[in-house]
Design a protein around this nucleic acid. Structure first.
Lengths: 208, 208, 208, 208
DNA sequence: TATGAATGAGCCTTCATTCAT
DNA sequence: CATGAATGAAGGCTCATTCAT
């Protein structure tokens, strides 16, 4: 319809950002986060360094975009899980499974990113624009827990706090595995272990 | 006794290292890990830049020292706990308490350090010389869990994996609190929450 | 023909290198070899320091370039002499003349450079890539001597050794003159003196 | 007699200078001229760095002392030769022999020193205080030549210029050998070659 | 819009020299 | 005199960002 030119332009811009994003990812994979240099990204993206600054304000802006792109799928899937018709308990299981699936798919990169402190403080993501990544995820998990509490399946507890403990545990385990402590990559085993550890502490003992 | 001169020298050297260490800590607190610059450290320590290099080979050497000094007390206390006569269950509780105590004492800094991936590769600490910090801690917790399993209090489980989940959860929670999500600093409440979440999943249901 | 862009770029690069080279030469003339500092070169070349590193890997790389550029003309001319149709005796005379001509043209600088031991190890020049400068020159002179020996004009002698003695003598004399011992700059006189000293020892007494 | 205290002091000072000198030499041998650092010298001399500055004004002063100490024996022997009752021709031969002897005895070090440009310009030596080393030696050789000219053995020639050519040739040959071009260390052969090359050009053809 | 050469502030490290003990 | 820890100016190199084409 209207403004096809503007639409084309927007599409092009998105393509360029994606292209640069992929280049950045490849650079991080090859050189680590410290090795993320704008000239390397430009070379990997087959554009000039100056071009990067057309699509991203500065390095931090690019890094934010990278992180968003990495976390977004996880976050979206997690939201889908939260909003699904599964029982809270199944949602939790689905979260565990999702986590391991996603991590295993991007092990090297995610490990690097997630472990990073430099994460220019406030990472902006979708509707969770002013929350940090961890907080975003933990927040959703907390909502699942709350639902479980309301439905009586889970015992009453400080949900966000529990969510942090759970999500922190899971991501640390994944980092440790990525770091080499445990070569096994059996998702179902991982999920089972998580359930075994966390569920008893969540379930409502008074429930049948 | 013998060589009092050498002893005095060693003491002085230790003092200087501590002084520089403290300066480095203050710099990190003020400017973050990225802001750790040798000139800033020198200024904070009220010495010349060159002086830093008398006591530390280079920046990395200094950073290592900082990290060791931060983690060592925690690690030592943890080892004491492990080797104490407490029951495994009480040891776990002691670990939770210790964690929150230590963190709360150094909140800002520890948050920065622990989150760092750059941990110049292998941080050497005590008997855990070739393990990374996280792994060191998790390893000790795993030993506590194993003891509990042997004594029948805890159910059989992959101890190191459980340890990662627990320690990861705790440290992430602390980071989150340091990050501002929860202003409360009630250690006993924190400990109780951790016990409530993790204990049920650890305890042996077959035990009396 | 093709790739005029690449050609322009290469030409530009060559110009920049030359420009920086000249700046380096001026800095050396003004401050000596020890005074060759990258910031000074940058200032003399009217570029930023960073720019130097676009065209030269590091300071050593630049110094190598400087030396090559100074010695190359001498070496090329010497090779031309060697390959010319002159008699060995005339070639020797031509070598003497060339030496004084070149030196007199760049007295100050060449004096500094040639005296340098730091000559970053192996200076690579033309076909003499793995020989040091002195050796390169002496090698060519030795070839001239050998030709003279074969043709019967010169007596049989260890040619390279003789070449070193001759070239060493000449360059030392020049350095001495550059150092101020003798203000005269009469090339023909210099040449005559050299011939008078060295020729009798080289000529074959048995020849007519 | 008088002032035994002052005499003792002077002797002590000389001892210290010698000791430091030897330390400096060992450092140069081990690390090259560039590696001559005051702390290394102090360590090698088993004194504190500050002590060096009691006996030498600064690094340059020390370096000068080192060079003097190295060259002095050569210079003294050369003077002895000059003042001996040998014929000029034999003196020249003695000079050649002396050169190779001395060099061969200190090859590594002398090579380093002599090749150096940094030789803080004016090296002060004994009666030749304001002449450079090369000039000092060449000056003596020139005197020998002049004596030969006066006695009719040598042809008339610019003696200092000839001396530079001769001494420059010899020292360059030695450097080349030290640099590895020729592993032979047969002094008599070297001397013979030098005589063969230089004598004919020096001898008076009119002499019987 | 794309280019990529140029920029230059920034930062680590060295080492000759000093001076309080 | 002797000490040696402290000094701090100096200098090489990096890399995010800009801007003329």
């Amino acid at each position: 319809m209207a403004k096809p030119k503007a639409r084309r332009k927007a599409a092009w811009e998105e393509m360029m950002k994606q292209s640069i994003y992929e280049a950045a990812v490849s650079v991080i994979k090859a050189h680590g986060l410290e090795g993320l240099r704008m000239d390397r990204v430009a070379q990997a993206a087959e554009v000039a360094t100056g071009t990067l600054y057309i699509y991203f304000k500065d390095k931090e802006d690019l890094l934010n975009y990278v992180i968003e792109n990495l976390v977004e799928p996880l976050l979206h899937s997690l939201i889908e899980i939260r909003d699904s018709r599964l029982t809270p308990l199944d949602k939790l299981e689905a979260y565990f499974r999702l986590s391991f699936q996603v991590w295993y798919g991007q092990e090297d990169l995610i490990t690097i990113i997630v472990t990073t402190p430099t994460l220019p403080s406030a990472v902006k993501i979708g509707g969770y624009s002013d929350l940090e990544v961890h907080r975003s995820i933990s927040g959703i998990i907390a909502e699942i827990i709350e639902e479980g509490v309301r439905s009586g399946v889970f015992r009453s507890c400080p949900s966000l706090r529990a969510a942090y403990l759970i999500h922190g545990g899971v991501s640390t385990l994944i980092k440790a595995k990525a770091g080499g402590y445990d070569p096994s990559r059996d998702i179902e085993l991982d999920v089972a272990d998580c359930l075994a550890l966390f569920l008893p502490g969540l379930l409502n003992p008074g429930a049948e």
